[in-house]
Design a protein around this nucleic acid. Structure first.
Length: 412
RNA sequence: GGCGCUAUCGUCUAGUGGUUAGGACAUCAGGUUCUCAUCCUGGUAACCGGAGUUCGAUUCUCCGUAGCGCUACCA
């Protein structure tokens, strides 16, 4: 393929606003960002807020704050300016709840072409059906109860005000195959695929529909997302084909795990990036650490410390692992210490001050005298042994508490 | 239960049809250091199990096991 035939690289980060930035999600954002930068492509932010039951007020702001904090600059999508949500770019809107007509349009098209159909089944019936299938040790799948409803039956049900969803009519013949940039060729028997719901009865799309439509319409070249979508992907591939669209490149990232190898969860420690910031980890350390969870620079490199620039230069999806990685705080501690050591005194002071201000001994000292000069002296001594910013000053609180000791020390 | 994916030191990982299986974190020992930390040196520590292919498998194939994911009108 010649250079000018090559499609522009366009990558998106598409979180749903659930209230905080999960570190697993953060890593997905990082990899997507690195990939975009490495290939001089576009990086954009789309918001997947199609689940009205889980809507959370401040979630969007928090999400954007973290992206900004991390330095994942995006050129397109959803921004917050002067406290207001704004959208930029030629492929908007970038908030899915504002794209409802678009989803409607394409579901209509799919129905006309026989790739989708209305389903009036109640959740009770579906539950019953699944139970039975399980009892018979069959895979729980929609039984196509509503597939062959006549036009009259459908019209009648609609007239009666029965609620319905729209399901994808899976092509059950043969296989669906696609290339995954981290997993290689993936091939699956179509008869195993379920007629998944595309449009909910409230008119909102499911992820299953929205991700395909948006990724296509926004001209996303590489779909980078978590491993949890691997098994659904063949259905998405069918959808692309049904719609007559080219299939993008896929890259499904391995999961981040707890120390017992279960999926990284709140119950076993902190999972929000915010938590790690509060705990006194530096931005660059967190990024460095997370980047190494599931990726390595390859070529026999033994480099452990990477600046953002170096990450951009070396990052490559082909060196992303297939297996999940345990989130090991010990290594984070070490990396954080490395970064703290590299800071100038001014930088360290700036980074440490918010943590110092939390300390009672510092507050007392600051109330009665000028503390900046002194704090810097202390930081200088502590710098090489400091692991987390939350520990700042602790080993030298004595100096803060005793004004004479402080004076002696300043004379050094 | 069904389907799929995955599997190298405790952890993150490199790597190969023949290697002393390499690095980093952690850990242990020693050195530097007034002490602690940093730093330096060294050590312990791994190819999930079983078959098969092969002159030779950690590497390739199959089976098993385990873990994870999906199995929602959640994403």
């Amino acid at each position: 393929m010649s250079e000018n035939m090559k499609k522009n690289v366009r990558v998106r980060f598409a979180p749903s606003p659930t209230g905080y930035m999960h570190v697993g999600n953060f890593r997905t954002a990082l990899y997507a960002y690195l990939f975009a930068k490495k290939n001089s492509g576009d990086f954009l932010l789309r918001i997947e807020d199609t689940d009205q039951k889980r809507f959370i007020q401040d979630a969007l702001e928090k999400l954007i704050d973290i992206l900004k904090w991390a330095g994942f600059e995006y050129s397109e999508g959803v921004f917050i300016e002067d406290g207001k949500v704004v959208q930029k770019g030629n492929f908007g809107p970038y908030i899915q709840s504002e794209r409802l007509e678009i989803y409607k349009k394409y579901t209509d098209q799919l129905m006309e072409q026989g790739h989708a159909y209305r389903c009036f089944c109640t959740s009770e019936r579906l539950e019953e059906m699944r139970k039975q299938q399980q009892a018979e040790k069959k895979p729980p799948m929609y039984d196509r109860h509503c597939l062959n409803l006549s036009k009259e039956e459908v019209a009648e049900k609609i007239k009666q005000g029965e609620k319905f969803v729209i399901r994808q009519k899976i092509d059950t013949e043969g296989f669906t195959e696609y290339d995954d940039l981290v997993r290689g060729k993936v091939k699956i028997k179509n008869e195993l695929l379920d007629d998944q719901v595309l449009l909910k009865s409230d008119g909102y799309p499911t992820y299953n529909l929205a991700n395909v439509i948006d990724d296509h319409l926004m001209e996303i070249s590489h779909v980078i997302r978590g491993e949890e979508y691997v098994s659904s992907n063949p259905k998405y591939v069918q959808l692309y084909k049904n719609l007559g669209w080219d299939v993008p490149q896929f890259a499904h990232l391995p999961l981040l795990l707890n120390s017992d190898k279960s999926k990284l969860s709140k119950r076993q420690g902190d999972v929000a990036v915010e938590d790690y910031i509060k705990k006194g980890y530096l931005k660059d350390a967190i990024i460095n650490f997370v980047a190494l969870l599931g990726w390595n620079p390859g070529e026999g490199s033994t480099q452990e410390i990477f600046s953002m620039q170096e990450l951009i230069e070396t990052f490559d999806l082909s060196h992303v692992h297939k297996a999940g990685a345990i989130f090991d705080l010990k290594k984070l501690d070490w990396i954080n210490g490395q970064y703290i050591k590299k800071l100038s005194l001014e930088e360290l002071y700036a980074a440490a001050l918010p943590f110092l201000k939390e300390k009672e001994f510092f507050q007392k000292a600051a109330a009665s005298r000028q503390t900046e000069e002194f704090a810097k002296k202390v930081l200088k001594i502590e710098q090489e042994r400091l692991v987390k910013l939350t520990d700042v000053g602790e080993e030298n609180r004595f100096f803060f508490e005793d004004i004479k000791a402080e004076k002696d020390m300043l004379r050094w």
